[in-house]
Structure formats: C-alpha cells, structure tokens
C-alpha cells in the first residue's frame, strides 16, 4: 500500500478531468466562488482567508481565473479569460516528491488528492507543480488542491445533475466540461478532438489530463457588412456651398 501511495499508478481505470473552453469563458469568476464555497463547506480543511477585510487580503483558492491579452501579427488584440486549477496530470511530479505519501493519484479514476492527516506542510509538491495548482493553507498548514469535487461526483445523496464538480455545475457560459478523457467516445474527448484541445506546458512532461480548447479565430469583417451600406455611404466627400465657405473661414482664423 505504501508503494502505491508514494509512486504513480502505471495506468488508471478512468482519466477524469476537465475540458475548459477558452473561446466561451467570459471571465465571470463564478467557478472560483463555487469552488471556494463547496471546498470550504465540505471535504477537508476549509479554504481560509487572511486579513479578509483588511488592506492586504489573501486566501487559498483551488481555481483562479487569469486574463491574457493576445495580439496577433495582424488584427486587433483579443482578451482571453483563463481559468486554471489542478490538471490531474498522468505523470504528476507533485505526487512523487511527497515525503510522507500524503499526495497520491487514485488508481480507479486518476484524481490527484492530498491525505490531509498525513501532510506535514513542507510545500515541496507546490514547488514541483508547474501550474500553481497547489496552495498551502495558511490557517490549516496543509496543502490544498482541486479534488475534482470527489465528494460530489460520486455522491448519491445529491441529485444526479449535481454530480459534477462545483465549477462545472455553476458555469453560466458552459465553458467547463467534466468527463472521462480515457474514453475516446466521451463528450469531453470528442470536444478535444474537434477543437484541437491542448496541454499546458507540454515541455514539462507532466501529461495533464485536463485540456484547454483554444479561442476560435476572430471573425474578419468583410468590406460590406450590410446590404444597406452603399446607401448609407457619405455622399459629399468635400464640403460644398455654405459648409465650404465656413470650412475655409474657420481655417483662416
């Protein structure tokens, strides 16, 4: 059992994870709040805040939404909202560095979890994670990370439609998708195939399970966007008559 805890499973039964659509995300942070709420009120140590109403508030979050400006070689810049949480990597470096075996990857579904009663709070797993998915809770002194809402997805006390991660359930834009990425016919796998879903920092060799769907190319505006446009074009290029006189007079002043 110790051996299973300390090392990564060779294969997992399922690869449960998220597919995040960067084209659809509107950056509302509802997933951030839903995550903080569920994971503070349910499994494990609550996600604490420090100086919450003071000058320098900080706190533990398992999901954070960044915003990036992407400027193409030609055309206008684009704003991309970018939610980021644990990617439940197949080759998770956070698991193998753990000295106590508190960090582990589940054999049955590939979820990466922390056994909080074994965590000594050394922080090395957070150092090993390229994505900033792990945060040491300042109040509890243990490492917190996304559990993929393991206490929701198998929870038969919840109505069936609620048995998905809180961030997915709450997303008003439908930008977050949950499913089994080991099954090529699952809805999430088809999304990844259709939309060229990508890995974050593939050069790190972590083989993330979560995938990101890139923003679709921006529509290009044709010369005529409206059939009425020709009729609405300005008729007089140069002012004539009274306006011509006024223009010249004003120039002279």
């Amino acid at each position: 059992m110790v051996c299973i805890m300390t090392t990564l499973p060779r294969t997992t039964g399922k690869k449960l994870g998220l597919v995040i659509d960067l084209d659809t995300c509107v950056g509302c942070h509802a997933c951030v709040i839903a995550c903080k709420g569920w994971n503070t009120e349910n499994y494990g140590a609550p996600l604490s805040d420090q100086d919450a109403y003071g000058a320098e508030p900080t706190g533990t979050f398992l999901n954070r939404v960044h915003s990036y400006e992407v400027t193409p070689a030609e055309g206008p810049a684009q704003l991309v909202h970018f939610p980021k949480s644990c990617l439940h990597c197949e080759d998770a470096p956070c698991v193998t560095v753990c000295p106590t075996g508190a960090s582990y990857k589940r054999t049955e579904d590939g979820i990466v979890l922390v056994n909080e009663s074994d965590c000594i709070g050394c922080g090395l797993c957070a150092w090993a994670c390229p994505y900033g998915a792990r945060e040491l809770d300042a109040a509890a002194g243990v490492m917190k990370k996304c559990t993929l809402c393991v206490d929701r997805i198998y929870n038969t006390n919840l109505p069936e439609e609620d048995r998905e991660p809180a961030c997915v359930r709450t997303c008003p834009a439908g930008a977050r998708h949950f499913g089994d990425l080991s099954d090529p016919d699952s809805a999430v796998s088809r999304l990844v195939a259709d939309r060229d879903g990508a890995d974050l920092m593939p050069e790190m060799g972590t083989k993330p399970v979560n995938k990101y769907l890139p923003p679709r190319p921006k529509d290009t505006l044709e010369a005529e966007t409206d059939i009425l446009a020709p009729f609405l074009a300005p008729i007089a290029e140069e002012p004539r008559g009274f306006f011509s006189w006024l223009d010249k007079t004003l120039e002279k002043i």
Partner: peptide, 11 residues
C-alpha cells in the same frame, strides 16, 4: 497558456 495565435501578455 497554449495561446499560440499571437503575443501573450498578462492582462
């Protein structure tokens, strides 16, 4: 970020 269609800046 995997955003390959332009120059990325943290906004």
């Amino acid at each position: 970020t995997g955003l390959t269609h332009g120059t990325v800046r943290a906004f």
